[in-house]
Amino acid sequence: MKRTITLLTYFPYILAPVVFAACLSYFFLKLGLFGKPVGVFVAQFMVAFPYALIFFSSFWGEKTKSYEELVATLGGNQWQAFRKVLLPIAKNMLVICFFQTFLISWFEYGLTSIIGVGKVQTLTIKVFLFIKESNFYYGALSCRLLILPPVLLLYINKRYVFNKLI
């Protein structure tokens, strides 16, 4: 079961985003999600979530199981093991994972443009539109806006996460 799920998590990365979107189109049409913000949200989740699973696959190893068992023999239940031990241990990984999945979604173009069919416009799609239209001023402005959140997250990560890891 675990192996099958792990194998499935690589699926969105084996295919090109446009091909992946084409595969999803049929189901999104059936569900009435095509061209809707919810549809784009679900599609982006289907790319970002497997990445998070891959990112955390090494965390759920023997050592984590040993921590859980240790807490149990010390008198703690599963919730206490999760809240008082596993979550604090995984805190830095969670922040980095959030940062990376945010970047995946933020810069996603192919999937968003097909599922959103031009009706749902993210900043990344806008940048491409402005460049295609040779609208250099708006293009430059949107590029600057596009880079702002990642720079801010990079600063927060460096200030509060990476420095603590070293």
């Binding site: 068992e69 240790l70 023999t73 008198g75 703690g76």
Partner: peptide, 12 residues
């Protein structure tokens, strides 16, 4: 295990 009052110590 949480109610046995038996603590297991690992090599690590």
């Amino acid at each position: 295990p949480e109610k046995r009052s038996i603590v297991y110590l690992y090599q690590e």
